[in-house]
Amino acid sequence: MGLTLLAAGTSIPDTIVSVMVAREGKGDMAMSNIVGSNVFDMLCLGLPWFIKTAFVNPSSPVVVNSTGLVFTTCSLLVSILILFIATYINGWKLDRKLGAACLIIYIVFATLSILYELGIIGNNPIRSCGV
């Protein structure tokens, strides 16, 4: 729950700023803000685990009960690459067509991540929190 609120708390202001600068005709600034926000979110998710293993209890690893973490991280990196390719094909212009493409990419990413985490796709059975 905390990671979801952290991601939403950092992404919503970045989205608003990206929309504002895109309306001013600065599409390159909006794109760099979008990609920078995604990279920041991915890097900051590992910070609590680093602090736990480096300073709090260096002798024990942090157990992460997520079977889809590697899949989700790789999917995020692929979605950033697809975003750059789609923007390049669109002539580095942000318009409704690119916005629709980005929305579709996000829906596909979120759907695949949820299905993988739930064990519906892939070879990962669903595990409970205590196991």
Rank of each mutant, 00 (worst) to 15 (best):
residue 1 M to Y: 12
residue 3 L to P: 00
residue 4 T to I: 15
residue 5 L to R: 15
residue 5 L to C: 05
residue 5 L to M: 10
residue 6 L to K: 11
residue 8 A to H: 05
residue 8 A to T: 05
residue 9 G to P: 06
residue 11 S to Y: 05
residue 11 S to W: 10
residue 12 I to H: 07
residue 14 D to C: 09
residue 14 D to M: 15
residue 14 D to P: 00
residue 16 I to Y: 09
residue 17 V to Q: 01
residue 20 M to V: 02
residue 21 V to M: 07
residue 21 V to L: 06
residue 24 E to L: 13
residue 26 K to E: 08
residue 28 D to S: 11
residue 30 A to E: 10
residue 33 N to R: 13
residue 33 N to L: 14
residue 33 N to M: 15
residue 33 N to S: 11
residue 35 V to L: 14
residue 37 S to C: 15
residue 37 S to I: 04
residue 39 V to D: 05
residue 39 V to K: 11
residue 40 F to Q: 07
residue 40 F to M: 11
residue 40 F to S: 09
residue 42 M to P: 00
residue 44 C to P: 00
residue 46 G to E: 01
residue 48 P to S: 04
residue 49 W to M: 15
residue 51 I to F: 10
residue 53 T to K: 06
residue 55 F to S: 09
residue 56 V to M: 05
residue 56 V to Q: 08
residue 57 N to I: 07
residue 61 P to F: 09
residue 61 P to L: 12
residue 62 V to T: 10
residue 62 V to F: 09
residue 64 V to T: 12
residue 66 S to P: 07
residue 68 G to N: 14
residue 70 V to R: 13
residue 73 T to A: 14
residue 74 C to V: 15
residue 75 S to M: 15
residue 76 L to T: 01
residue 79 S to C: 04
residue 80 I to F: 04
residue 83 L to Q: 09
residue 85 I to C: 01
residue 88 Y to H: 07
residue 89 I to Q: 06
residue 94 L to D: 00
residue 95 D to L: 01
residue 95 D to T: 11
residue 97 K to I: 02
residue 97 K to N: 08
residue 98 L to C: 00
residue 99 G to E: 05
residue 100 A to Y: 04
residue 102 C to G: 00
residue 102 C to A: 12
residue 105 I to C: 01
residue 105 I to E: 01
residue 106 Y to V: 06
residue 106 Y to F: 13
residue 107 I to P: 03
residue 109 F to A: 06
residue 112 L to P: 00
residue 113 S to C: 14
residue 114 I to L: 09
residue 114 I to S: 06
residue 118 L to S: 04
residue 122 G to V: 01
residue 123 N to M: 03
residue 130 G to K: 13
